[in-house]
Computed example of a mutant assay.
Amino acid sequence: MSEIAFYTYPAAPTYPSEENQCSTLVRLATLGAVVGGAAAAASNLRALRAERVEAGQAVIDTARTALATAVASAVGGAAAGVVAEQGVVRLGMMFAAGTAVMYGLGRRMEGGGDES
């Protein structure tokens, strides 16, 4: 009997499906909301204990910050996904896009969005 040789070839790179990309962005947004909301809550708790802010305003500020960081995380993740699969470039893009979104949302919330 003759021997049959089997050759294996490296698998072609797989790219995440759109469904996976959407779920990844939702996870990033959720993580951003949790981290940003926790940081805002800690800051607002400190201000509340020092009587620099009312309880209702602290809750509103915490919710706004959680929402803003969720949006910034999702936008940053989407922008980074276009640039690179991993590494420093991806991290830098996430940071830059997230910073830009937080800056823009902050200006908008402060009423400075109409100025040039």
Score class of each variant (00 low, 15 high):
A47D: 04
F6M: 10
T24I: 04
A50C: 08
V83G: 03
A78L: 11
A33H: 00
A72F: 06
T62D: 03
A42H: 07
R90F: 04
Y9N: 14
Y7M: 07
R27T: 07
S2Y: 00
L28E: 13
A50N: 13
A38T: 09
C22N: 12
T65E: 02
C22F: 06
Y15E: 07
A66R: 08
A41P: 00
A29S: 10
Y103Q: 03
A41N: 03
T62G: 08
L91F: 14
D61E: 07
R49C: 10
P10E: 00
R64D: 07
A96M: 04
S43H: 14
V53M: 14
A47V: 02
G77Q: 03
Q21S: 13
Q57S: 09
V35L: 12
E51N: 14
E54M: 07
V34D: 03
G87V: 09
A96Q: 05
E85I: 06
Y103M: 04
A80I: 01
G112K: 15
S116W: 10
V71T: 08
G98M: 01
G32K: 09
T62R: 06
D61Q: 15
S23R: 10
I60G: 09
A5G: 15
R64M: 12
A80L: 05
A33P: 00
I60A: 15
A74C: 11
Q86K: 13
E115H: 14
A63H: 02
A66K: 07
G36W: 01
T65P: 06
M94K: 07
G37N: 00
T24E: 00
Y9L: 15
S73N: 03
A66G: 05
V71Y: 05
G92N: 05
F95I: 04
Y9Q: 14
V82W: 15
L91Y: 13
N44H: 11
V83I: 03
G112H: 12
A78F: 12
A42M: 14
E110V: 09
D114G: 12
R90L: 00
G76M: 00
S73D: 01
V88W: 13
A5Y: 08
T30P: 00
M93L: 05
R90P: 02
S116K: 11
R46D: 06
S2D: 02
S2P: 01
A41S: 02
A97S: 12
M109R: 08
T62N: 13
S23V: 05
L31D: 00
A58T: 01
